[in-house]
Design a protein around this nucleic acid. Structure first.
Lengths: 202, 202
DNA sequence: TATGCTAGTAATAACTTACTCACTTCATGG
DNA sequence: CCATGAAGTGAGTAAGTTATTACTAGCATA
């Protein structure tokens, strides 16, 4: 669990902390991630964390920032290379699923953060991120409608909600089964139904 | 917050406790529901709770049991009265959404329970409940396939996952917006897309 | 090599949590 | 009407939480 501590620069240490949080979230309830657990994972004493972050909140903020950037960037990149709006949606979906399969703790943390009753910065960061994500989805879908690939009557707001729900459903399934591997295997079939729901009539 | 305490029978007190937990979950992070918060809500001292439940875990188990019964029964009843498999699915969906709108804390608690790393009884109860739910969905969908109302090629496992994800997406949206009212308004449009995804080709 | 700075330690303060228990209050049947 | 058992009180405990701080180890460079 804990190796011998090594001197890292402040920047490296902050990055290592974020990585530790993301890793821990994959293994246990994000609500149970204590500063002690983070420090143990890094082979550090608990107090040392507060050399680099003023509060635990700040650790969560840094983690949300990391997640937001990585996820949006990779999803954007996937959409860019696609030949059509529908292909872009599928690429976004599969990239997102790949990200989640690689970092299973991420969707749990996001959902957990959204549940918090107090209005923290970390929570607002998650809200902003999801809204940006939805905006991207709506844009692609509007393009799909315009060129006739998607249903002309499609309610893009509802479709964006369902897109995210589709992923959430797969995450829930992986929690049920206790293993993340299923998520990758089941994703195509689930997306196929979604794709059919938004597509133009045959 | 707390009224004057009244003497209740053990059975009534246990029921009141479950209700307090469900209510609290609607307002705050389920992870933050402490025994003190529950007792306060009931106008009781914290120690009194342990006259009726041996542990906090037992309180959660009782709550999960309450949720499971109520949800499954009302969904079953909705499906029974439907004219066709597709109508049954829609009735189940709308009933489920109605339940969630009435008890917004419920889906959060279920998800939170699934996230727990330790194998508690409450967690296993949630797993069992969702599996039963999926089984009912699959049965209705198979009937829909058989009579040609649903796509003959439909992957019912994936469709069941997506059904639950559809609800989960709406819950997430209500967390984003901070109000539950939206969920009822947006549900029909989201279900319409889902319905289209599983329906027979035109 | 000496010096100054940064990272890390370890003890602990301040607080919260679930749970316990000796005692008190209540309500109801003989 | 009062004895008795159940429900409730409130003070307490042990364990665990974030955060603070006096001190130490390690690195870079003048």
């Amino acid at each position: 669990m804990n190796e011998r501590p090594q001197h890292l620069s402040a920047e490296e240490r902050r990055a290592a902390t974020v990585k530790a949080v993301v890793d821990l979230a994959a293994e246990k309830n994000p609500a149970e991630i204590t500063t002690t657990a983070i420090a143990d994972r890094m082979g550090l004493t608990q107090g040392a964390l507060f050399r680099h972050f003023p509060t635990k909140e700040a650790i969560l903020e840094a983690t949300m920032s990391w997640v937001g950037e990585r996820l949006l960037v990779s999803v954007d990149k996937a959409a860019e290379g696609a030949a059509s709006p529908a292909a872009a949606l599928e690429a976004m979906f599969m990239t997102h699923i790949g990200f989640v399969a690689k970092h299973p703790g991420v969707p749990r943390m996001l959902f957990g953060e959204l549940q918090r009753s107090d209005e923290t910065l970390a929570k607002r960061m998650v809200q902003t991120m999801i809204r940006q994500y939805e905006q991207r989805l709506r844009r692609v879908m509007e393009a799909g409608k315009a060129q006739g690939e998607l249903d002309a009557e499609l309610d893009v707001d509802a479709a964006a909600v369902l897109f995210i729900g589709t992923i959430q459903g797969l995450v829930m399934q992986s929690l049920l089964a206790g293993k993340v591997s299923r998520i990758r295997r089941e994703a195509p079939a689930v997306f196929a139904i979604y794709r059919r729901g938004i597509g133009a009539a045959q």
